[in-house]
Design a protein around this nucleic acid. Sequence first.
DNA 1: GATGAATGAGCATTCATTCAT
DNA 2: CATGAATGAATGCTCATTCAT
Lengths: 205, 205, 205, 205
Amino acid sequence: MKKRKGPHASTRIRKGSIIRSALRCFSEIGFSATTMEDIRQHSGASTGSIYHHFKGKDQLAAEVYIEGIREYQAGLVEVFQSEEDAREGIRRLVGHHLRWVEENIEWSRYLFRNRFSAFLASTEEALSTMNRDLAESSSAWFGRHIRAGELRRMPTDIIIALILGPCMEHTRQYLEGLTATRTDRAVRELADAIWRAIAVHADEA
Amino acid sequence: MKKRKGPHASTRIRKGSIIRSALRCFSEIGFSATTMEDIRQHSGASTGSIYHHFKGKDQLAAEVYIEGIREYQAGLVEVFQSEEDAREGIRRLVGHHLRWVEENIEWSRYLFRNRFSAFLASTEEALSTMNRDLAESSSAWFGRHIRAGELRRMPTDIIIALILGPCMEHTRQYLEGLTATRTDRAVRELADAIWRAIAVHADEA
Amino acid sequence: MKKRKGPHASTRIRKGSIIRSALRCFSEIGFSATTMEDIRQHSGASTGSIYHHFKGKDQLAAEVYIEGIREYQAGLVEVFQSEEDAREGIRRLVGHHLRWVEENIEWSRYLFRNRFSAFLASTEEALSTMNRDLAESSSAWFGRHIRAGELRRMPTDIIIALILGPCMEHTRQYLEGLTATRTDRAVRELADAIWRAIAVHADEA
Amino acid sequence: MKKRKGPHASTRIRKGSIIRSALRCFSEIGFSATTMEDIRQHSGASTGSIYHHFKGKDQLAAEVYIEGIREYQAGLVEVFQSEEDAREGIRRLVGHHLRWVEENIEWSRYLFRNRFSAFLASTEEALSTMNRDLAESSSAWFGRHIRAGELRRMPTDIIIALILGPCMEHTRQYLEGLTATRTDRAVRELADAIWRAIAVHADEA
DNA sequence: GATGAATGAGCATTCATTCAT
DNA sequence: CATGAATGAATGCTCATTCAT
């Protein structure tokens, strides 16, 4: 039997448990308010062990953040890489956003409340890469549908604002407990409205 | 000549200088990362003097926040209280948001990046009042135009998301230096698109 | 009555007490082994107060070191600036060294055991200046007596080694409790021997 | 072929590499500032491996120290055991010291800067033995030459200070890059001067 | 009102050492 | 013998806040 390469299973378990505990603490009481001691207690790891796996609090927070963004973006990329018509695409984008938030409420709280946190400085490179990749596939998707006469010709930043904006604002209300509309309906209403905002309509053709 | 009531001029100057310094520090390095020492150095006031004027760091941050929200909301309220038609109203709402952000960049950074911050707890009352007032005048405005057949009948949270969302997302991009479109055009594009999203159109009447 | 400038008397007292406590701790158990808590307890100051007066452990240690060197060098400079004959000067140099060590045993332990400590890095400039000043006055003194035919013409580094070396080595033995000779006699023996080593003798004239 | 007793060759190599790395780290950044992690990285050994070969940091440092002292003292002992005249002996002592320092600069830095370090406590016995042995052979040598009328009758601590002191002080200057005189000349000058300091001269006989 | 020295609980982090594999 | 994950006591330092002058 060959000697295993890489960390033992137990190692991966311990590291994962630290990440999970960190996410819970950060999302519940915020990055600054969370102490390493909190994470230590929740994860059952020792102080030294945490620092064995992560360089420090910042790096730990950054690693959790990156992981969340990766999960969230995966759903978007999937849409941008499919070939369906634009209207269906918009529906799926909005649907993915609202449902992902609902199903990953801890991550949502953490991600959307820490977009500007200083601890992300150490992640700038990784985040830039991820954002650039997403921007590329979204640009390609928009370009395709604009050229097909489905979407209005608008600057990318405006399109993004028109699609992502309502979703994010809805998320903000959701996280603050201010939403009055059920998710399914919200998805439908938002997707339809966004479609009206960015689509080329029959009478304009 | 009557003796004046209230603080002396010098006091008001000192207090204002502390608020201005606090805003600058908070917007540049964030609330948590800013120390009272930072504010002390920027303002030129002594530690004791800051605590003489403000109860603590939270209250100082809250006071700055409230002041900013008041300034920002003033422009919105003005629109909601005018009698013009809905389309012009949307144009003015979007225009006010984008231009206010551009003209009050430090406050924008501070306000829009701290929507969730814990220090606002000490302001909950004041903020709630302001938000309730705004919600009332905006609800009245929306209701009026919905009943007039100008705007679609939608839940308030959805309408808010559709109007405020794109503006906020544009602000995010602006603050991150990612906007490619000039403000005037952005206002036009966003306002027109938002109008398409929420208005009742001729062929639907 | 004019307003006093500079720190209050109580401030100076507190700062001095911290320095004194630090010297005692450092000299007794060494720099690394001394904790800020030790110094806090000995001085009666609070943690925050220590850090109010000193930037950190290193700077505190450096400040104590500088103060000690200043005290020690003062006695040497006095000799180098007097006009007496060379032989008497050597006697006084050796005498000052041995007696200062004996009378300032804590400082001696601290100074002679920390010549190379890393915390001195922050002091390099101040120390260089002090050493340069001392080197200048000593060089002038040696030069005068060499030209007067009292001392042999030798490189400065050699002269220094011949005078300071035996004194330092005696100090090392003294601090380790290995000296068998009473100070007065040690001064005489060392000064006479050093004189034989560096003086121009009658039969060589 | 008989089975070899004692550690395998590879073991000796690993252990030696650890010692060498430790010496380098200790001499460059000091004992306290050096972490086991530093030594681990420089040596390429694992944490566990280091602790397999050495009981701890102190013992490792002590072992390196002892080894250096042994090397250094060997040259001195050789002189003390030879039968040549005193003057030649002094020349050889001084020459050995200065040249050994020059050829073993890392060890010099380490040995001569850690004469007082606490980690040597664990070596007290070994060091005492070595020092006693050296003291015995040196005392015998001095005694012989004093009785022969070559050297002045002085207390041992004074003689030591007069011989070792200038050498050590020269070393200090050398390690700090402050020496201006080439080694050969320095040996000659120092040895001659020390000789004048401790010898019985013709006109005093 | 102003000043800045003093306070001290709280925190992130280090690092020598242990031990299961 | 080697490995490196795990341990946890120890420590330097921060920073909001208080208070005597």
